[in-house]
Design a protein around this nucleic acid. Structure first.
Lengths: 214, 214
DNA sequence: TGTAATGTTTACCAATCGGTCAAATTATCT
DNA sequence: AGATAATTTGACCGATTGGTAAACATTACA
């Protein structure tokens, strides 16, 4: 008899690992565009190249798929912020944070859109993670930024809104990709737009913060 | 016999105006949260307080509702950019543009989310408007910014990415409202966060652009 | 190789989807 | 008031939704 995935507690089969990966990949394709409510298991099954019941053999519900995806994305998504080093030089830390976030927008746009979709819907599945681990991490980094300001290494500014502005400006190139391409036109819609964005954003933030050059 | 709305060419009844307004208001509630695919006519009908066939009496399809909503939002959404005055002082123009966009994020968050949802889905209903009127308007304002840079009134920077960064930072407070509230915590989640954001963003952009004070 | 566990599919279910229809109700105008 | 047009709704339609049951196929392992 077939035992659905969620009921298994023992180690996973080779096939399980492969198929679950294929399904999550397909689910990311679909969820990131249409959001949770707008996506269907049939769409995911088609993209994954298997039948709907087969998908449901590995993930018992649509919610289980979404949950697994969100959990994975949430972790890797905060990686750049965790890497933010309180002992580093403020200017280079902020520069590399911007660069890393921009690279993620370029290389993982679906993950960005999945997250954006979840936020737009009011974060029904992850509000706890926002109030808990995310807030804790941001609080910690905000304190680092504040200490830089106290030490005179950086212009005094609201560290929370600084972080928000880095998030929004970088993720914009993933979430609003269509708009960016449409406005830039065919000429500037190549991958070069990310380098232009990096140049512009580093200038905006570093000069904007009046970071003293060492 | 009842003549559905779209077939009418004569002037509209008082009831028509009222009900269409109620329906669009409800549709904005629903579409802005769940996106087009994730929203149902039943939801809209319930929010509007009328039966589904009655909603469909005024808008023949779900798409017609969405289209009417998008058209209206797209127009008012670009109002602040249109108001961007090429004859004005660069610093005060940019300051007031930021302020206006932030006010819209505060006062019309549903409109912002409706638009964001449409972008996330790849702008299936408005890509033409993006490539046409929107691009034309941005091109025009970008040229203004470039002329300010040539005249030495402003630091040289990519005007398109400057506009993108103003859009993203301001709309962030509408689209990612849940996240902003969660990270700021209860203490700073009041309406005061918009004033904090305005202060921070004006500092970021104006100083970042090294605008010479007159 | 045999067999038990795992994986896959066809057929199906009740609920919900977008949308229609005709009948009933209400507003408008003379 | 009465006639006519505009509005509203309950019943309904075929298609699609998330999910299940059970038969069938494949794999892993003794």
């Amino acid at each position: 008899m077939a035992i659905p995935r969620a009921a298994r507690t023992q180690r996973r089969t080779r096939i399980q690992e492969e198929k679950e990966e294929i399904i999550l990949e397909a689910a990311l394709d679909v969820f990131s565009v249409s959001g949770f409510r707008g996506s269907t298991i049939d769409q995911i099954a088609e993209v994954a190249g298997m039948s709907k019941p087969n998908v449901l053999y590995y993930f018992r519900t649509k919610e289980a798929m979404h949950r697994a995806l969100i959990d994975r994305v949430l972790f890797t998504w905060l990686e750049p912020l965790r890497a933010f080093d309180s002992n580093g030089d403020p200017e280079s830390e902020i520069r590399s944070y911007i660069r890393r976030k921009l690279e993620m927008a370029r290389d993982f746009p679906r993950e960005s859109r999945l997250f954006a979709n979840e936020m737009l819907q009011g974060a029904p599945h992850v509000e706890d993670e926002l109030r808990g681990p995310l807030k804790a991490l941001v609080d910690e980094k905000a304190e680092v930024i504040r200490s830089w300001a106290r030490a005179g290494k950086i212009t005094k500014c609201d560290p929370y809104h600084l972080i928000f502005s880095i998030w929004s400006t970088t993720q914009h190139y993933a979430d609003f990709d269509v708009q960016v391409r449409a406005v830039l036109g065919q000429d500037h819609s190549g991958e070069g737009r990310f380098e232009d964005a990096a140049r512009y954003l580093e200038q905006l933030f570093v000069d904007g913060l009046r970071i003293r050059h060492t």
